[in-house]
């Protein structure tokens, strides 16, 4: 088991956002975290990364308790994080952005180099000296995934990677994520719709107002339109 979370709750100030979530991702598995805008997907992922101060519950990553650790310790255990708003360093070039994410190779996980990443994201190859702030949204999304891979993670948390991207770019990204998965990198992917998840994920978790309302194979959602329509954006 790669990531195992039990009874995760999180608060922003006094408002409780998450209610006792249970999430698990096996090694190399791709799991979709689905829910409407405001359901608590971003909070779930940032709580796992240690970016939210007020949390409760347990989270084990490869057997190591990570809840309460500072974000850099979580990242160094091999848990990668791709934030919703991309957060590319706009003053830094593509190469420099990648350098910030660089971590030593990890045993048992494929080691990424800028060269290998640029074959995965060919768009970036021509832009290596371009500043992050001068790139299109799609290019930034590729860069932020590549930057996270520089840390050689064994599991990547992806927060709504398809948001605001043109369909053609989404297709390119799906190809890249598939290649990552084929390399043995696990994925926990948050989305409001099933477009990306269908191509990658085996299982789905559906959350609503911070509660886990459904979990099971992705195919169940199609056979259970009530849950799908109640919880997902059309």
């Amino acid at each position: 088991m790669s990531l195992e979370i039990r009874a995760l709750s999180a608060w922003h100030g006094r408002a409780r956002i998450l209610h006792d979530l249970t999430v698990s991702v096996a090694a190399g598995e791709a799991v979709a975290l689905l829910g409407r805008n405001g359901a608590g997907k971003t909070t779930t992922l940032s709580a796992i990364m240690g970016l939210i101060p007020h949390v409760r519950g347990t989270a084990l990553f490869n057997g190591v308790p990570i809840l309460g650790l500072p974000p850099h310790r979580v990242a160094r255990l091999g848990l990668g994080y791709v934030p919703e708003d991309r957060r590319v360093f706009s003053d830094l070039t593509v190469d420099e952005n990648l350098a910030v994410g660089r971590q030593p190779p990890r045993p048992g996980v494929p080691a990424w180099t800028p060269e290998r990443l640029l074959t995965l994201f060919p768009n970036l190859a021509a832009l290596r000296r371009r500043r992050g702030g001068q790139m299109s949204g799609g290019e930034q999304q590729m860069l932020t995934i590549a930057r996270t891979l520089m840390g050689n993670p064994s599991l990547v948390l992806l927060d709504e990677p398809s948001e605001g991207l043109a369909p053609r770019i989404v297709d390119q990204m799906i190809q890249a994520l598939r290649a990552m998965k084929a390399d043995g990198v696990g994925l926990l992917l948050s989305e409001q719709n099933l477009i990306v998840a269908r191509h990658l994920c085996d299982r789905a978790l559906v959350i609503e107002k911070g509660h886990l309302v459904h979990h099971g194979p992705l195919a169940d959602l199609d056979s259970n339109p009530a849950i799908r329509d109640a919880t997902l954006a059309p």
Partner: peptide
């Protein structure tokens, strides 16, 4: 130096990428 410039823009993200902010 690259880490310093990155942190000048977004120190929380630098931490989430495995850099010891402290």
């Amino acid at each position: 130096g690259v880490l310093v410039r990155a942190a000048t823009q977004d120190r929380a993200m630098v931490g989430a990428l495995g850099v010891n902010q402290a």
